[in-house]
C-alpha cells in the first residue's frame, strides 16, 4: 500500500469538495474492493474520503411505486430488505449469488456498482495491463483469458465486470443517482458502465468528483417470472463465468415485457434491447429463447481460453428464461439447477 491520508466526510458537499480539491482522492465506503486493490498496489490513492457516515443509507419506497436504495445500503441489507426481497426478488437473488455473507455485509450498493475487474493481469503489477497502466498492453488477450470478455471487448482490453448485482440492476433498468461538483443527475444503469474501447482505465462514465448517492428501481412488474442463474468454477464464493438475469412479464400466455442481461461476458452488464423484443408478443418457448440468446450473443468472439463462454452463455440464457417463464427462479442455496 502507498501511504495515504484519511478524511472522514461530514457531508456530501464536504466529500465532493474533497474529491475535487485533491486529484488523488478516492471515495471509500465498504472497502471490500478498494482496500484489496490497494494492498496489491493496483490502486494508490493519495487520500481516502470516507463517506460511510453520510446519510446515504436506507431503502425507501418512491412515489412512482418503486424503491430508492441509498448508495451506502449494504448488499446484505438490500437482499434481505422485506420490500426489496418481495418486489425485486431477481435483485435479491443476484446479490445473494455474489461474494460471501461477510463481504455482502460490508459491501455497499454504490461500491458494488463501481467494482473493478477480476482480470488476473489487472491485479498483478508485474504484468502489462492497459486498464491499470494505460499504454502498457493487454496481457490477457494472448495469456490467461478464461474469464475474459466475449462481447464488447477492444484491442486494448478484454476485462469483464465482476458484479452480480449490476446484472440484475441492468435487467431491472435501475436509475443511478449521482451528485458532483456540477450538481445532481440521474442516469440509466446502462449508461453508467462503459465498454473499454481505447480508454479501458475508465470503467464508468462518472465525472471526477461525482459520488453515487442512490439507485432507484422502477415499479415492480415481473412477479415470479424471473431468475438469476450464475455459473462458476465452484458452487459458491466464486465470480461468474457467465450469469444471466432474466425477467418476464407474462399475460394471457404471452410475454409482454422481457428483460435479459448477462454477467461475466463483457466490460459491463450485457443487454441488447432487440434481443428482448424478440421475446415480446410471443408465447414463451425454447425456440423463442434460443432466438433471443443468439441475438444477445451476436458478435461474440472468444480468445481461446474463454471460447466456451459462447455456448455456455447461450444455454444459460435459454435455461434462465425457461426458469423465469415457469415462475421457478434459480435458488442460490439449493445447487440443483431446475
Amino acid at each position: 500500500m502507498t501511504p495515504f491520508s484519511y478524511l472522514r466526510a461530514q457531508s456530501l458537499q464536504d466529500a465532493i469538495a474533497a474529491l475535487a480539491a485533491e486529484p488523488g482522492s478516492r471515495v471509500i465506503a465498504g472497502g471490500t474492493n478498494l482496500v484489496d486493490l490497494m494492498k496489491y498496489d493496483v490502486e494508490a490513492p493519495r487520500r481516502l474520503v470516507d463517506i460511510t457516515r453520510l446519510p446515504l443509507h436506507g431503502v425507501i419506497p418512491t412515489d412512482a411505486g418503486g424503491l430508492r436504495i441509498g448508495a451506502l445500503t449494504p448488499n446484505s441489507d438490500l437482499a434481505y430488505h422485506p420490500q426489496a426481497a418481495r418486489d425485486y426478488p431477481l435483485l435479491a437473488s443476484a446479490i445473494l449469488a455474489g461474494a460471501s455473507a461477510q463481504l455482502r455485509n460490508a459491501a455497499t450498493t454504490g461500491g458494488n456498482l463501481l467494482q473493478r475487474t477480476r482480470c488476473p493481469y489487472f491485479y498483478d503489477v508485474a504484468t502489462a495491463c492497459n486498464k491499470r497502466a494505460p499504454g502498457s498492453g493487454c496481457s490477457a488477450r494472448t495469456g490467461i483469458n478464461r474469464n475474459a470478455a466475449i462481447l464488447g471487448a477492444s484491442e486494448a482490453c478484454v476485462a469483464t465486470h465482476p458484479s452480480d448485482m449490476c446484472v440484475a440492476l441492468a435487467a431491472l433498468e435501475a436509475i443511478v443517482h449521482v451528485e458532483g461538483p456540477n450538481g445532481a443527475r440521474a442516469l440509466p444503469i446502462a449508461d453508467l458502465h462503459r465498454l473499454p474501447g481505447d480508454a479501458p482505465e475508465r470503467d464508468v462514465t462518472l465525472d471526477r468528483g461525482e459520488i453515487i448517492t442512490a439507485v432507484e428501481l422502477p415499479s415492480p412488474r415481473f412477479g415470479r417470472h424471473h431468475s438469476y442463474l450464475k455459473l462458476r468454477d465452484r458452487l459458491s464464493y466464486a465470480f461468474a463465468l457467465v450469469s444471466v438475469a432474466a425477467a418476464l412479464e407474462i399475460a394471457g400466455g404471452r410475454v409482454v415485457t422481457a428483460r435479459l442481461a448477462l454477467g461475466g461476458v463483457a466490460h459491463k452488464p450485457w443487454r441488447i434491447r432487440e434481443a428482448e423484443a424478440l421475446l415480446e408478443g410471443a408465447a414463451p418457448s425454447r425456440a423463442a429463447f434460443a432466438e433471443a440468446a443468439d441475438r444477445l450473443l451476436q458478435g461474440a468472439v472468444g480468445l481461446g481460453g474463454n471460447d466456451f463462454k459462447i455456448p455456455l452463455a447461450r444455454r444459460a440464457i435459454i435455461r434462465a428464461l425457461t426458469q423465469a417463464a415457469d415462475g421457478a427462479p434459480q435458488s442460490q442455496s439449493r445447487k440443483v439447477i431446475n
Binding site: G31, T32, V35, D36, L48, S76, Q102, L103, N105, A106
Partner: peptide
C-alpha cells in the same frame, strides 16, 4: 455483523 477484518480499515 460478520465482516472480513482484513478489508476493514
Amino acid at each position: 455483523r460478520r465482516v472480513n477484518a482484513c478489508l476493514q480499515l
